[in-house]
């Protein structure tokens, strides 16, 4: 190394010494792998979460305070019934003009 290089070496060495007080910014801390697109995964996870939450916290339908029991029973008919419940016998029938014959 000649004297020319020595002078230049010394100059750059002093420059390096001066630069030691310069702080270096931190290296990014996130993953070194290729960046992934997480959007579809996040949407799927959100939908799954909402589904599970709906099943767990499904709103209960209001229950009535009383119950109605309806029992169906066949109607028992032991005897035939007359279609004419009440009627006027022919023997008791009286002509509306009978009184005219009798009085006059």
């Amino acid at each position: 190394m000649n004297s020319e290089d020595r002078i230049i070496e010394d100059f750059f060495q002093s420059m390096k010494d001066q630069d030691k007080k310069i702080s270096t910014p931190p290296v990014p801390t996130h993953s070194h792998n290729k960046k992934q697109n997480w959007f579809p995964y996040s949407v799927a996870a959100s939908l799954l979460f909402l589904g599970v939450a709906y099943v767990i916290f499904e709103p209960q339908k209001p229950v009535a305070d009383y119950t109605i029991n309806i029992t169906l029973e066949p109607r028992r008919v032991n005897a035939t019934q007359s279609l004419v419940d009440a009627g006027i016998s022919i023997e008791e029938w009286e002509s509306p003009t009978q009184s005219l014959i009798e009085d006059f």
Binding site: P25, V27, P28, H30, S31, H32, K34, K35
Partner: peptide
């Protein structure tokens, strides 16, 4: 500049 360079590395 270093941020841009590291971003280039991370994005491939």
């Amino acid at each position: 500049v270093m941020q841009m360079v590291y971003l280039k590395l991370l994005e491939g």
